[in-house]
Amino acid sequence: MPEIVLENVCKTFTTKDGIVQALKNVNLEIEAGEIYGIIGMSGAGKSTLVRCINFLEEPTEGRVLIRGKSLGEYSEKELRKQREDIGMIFQHFNLLMQKNVMDNVCFPLYIQKKSKREAREKALELLKIVGLSDRTKAYPAQLSGGQKQRVAIARALASDPKILLCDEATSALDPQTTSSILALLKDINQNLGITIVIITHQMSVVREICNRVAILKDGEVAEYGDVEDIFLHPRTEVARELIRNDVEINQDQKGPALHGRDLIRSGDRIRVIYRDQPDAQPVIANMVLRFLEPVNIMGANTRSVHGKAAGEIILEFIPESTQKAEMKQYLRDCGLEVEEVDVNVD
C-alpha cells in the first residue's frame, strides 16, 4: 500500500480578485521509504499541495490517504493526532525565536504532554543526529540558516514521524549549506526509514536526492516518474525548462572550469553520431550546462544514409576533465552513439 495517495485533489481559494484554482485534479502515489520530489515554478501550487498532505489546507475536492486512511474522515482531534506522524520543515525554518534550541526541539513533545525529562532525552538524541548537540542553549537568532534548518529537522523528527514534508527547505540557504542539509535528509531517509516529500523549485535538489519526481504546472501534474527518466527524456515543456534552469548546487566543488576557454587542445576526442532527432533537444549545450565543463566542437557534418539524415560531431574534452565517463554516458542516455577517436594533435 502506498504511504501517501492523493486522489483527484482540487483546491480553490476565494480571493478578492475572484476564485483561484490552486490545484486541479492532482493524483499522486508516494511509496513508503522513498524521497519524492514535487517541483514547479513559483505559483504552480506546490506549497498548497504539500499542505494538503497534512491537511493544513483542506482540499476542496478529492481525498488524501495516509497508509490507506482518508484524512478527511478524521475529526479535528484525530487529525491533530495524525499530524504527529507527519513532520514538516519550512523555507524560513519557523522556529520559536524566544525559545532556545532544546526547547524548540522539545516543543512537539510538550504539546503531546510528554514529561520534561522524556522530552529532553529525545531532543538530545535528535540534536546529536543533526550535529547540534553542543548548541542546546543557543537561541535561533544566534544560529546560521543551516543550523536553524537542522534544529527544525530535529524538531520535526521529535514525534517519530513516518513522513517528513519539506516545503522549500533549502531555498533560503546557500549552495554548500543546501548540500549538507540534503545529505542529512538522505541519511534520515536511509537510517530512520522516513518517507520524505520535498517541495522545491530547484531541479538540482531533485537530482541530488529524490527517487521520483512530479512536475507541477498551474496546479496540475504535468509529468511524473523516476528522476533519471525525467532528466533524460523530459516530455513536457515545463520539464525541459526546469532542467535548463538546473544549475549545479556545488559549483565550487564540481566542474574544473565554469568559465569559457580560449583554447581546448587535449587530443581527447570523441565522435558523437546522431540520427533523426524528433525533438530538437540541445544535447551538447545541456551536457555542458549540467557538467559545467566546456567541450570543443572540432567538426560536424551531416550525411544522408539510406535517405535518412545522420550526423557526426567531434568533441574534444578539456585536459583536466574529471567527468568524461559521465558525459559520455549522458550522451548515450540521450540516444546518441559515442565512439573514441584517435587523432594526432598538430
Binding site: 504527529e84 522556529l95 524538531r155
Partner: peptide, 11 residues
C-alpha cells in the same frame, strides 16, 4: 509561519 509550524505538529 511559527503558528503554521505548531499546527503541523498537531497543536
Amino acid at each position: 509561519g511559527v503558528i503554521e509550524a505548531a499546527r503541523s505538529m498537531g497543536a
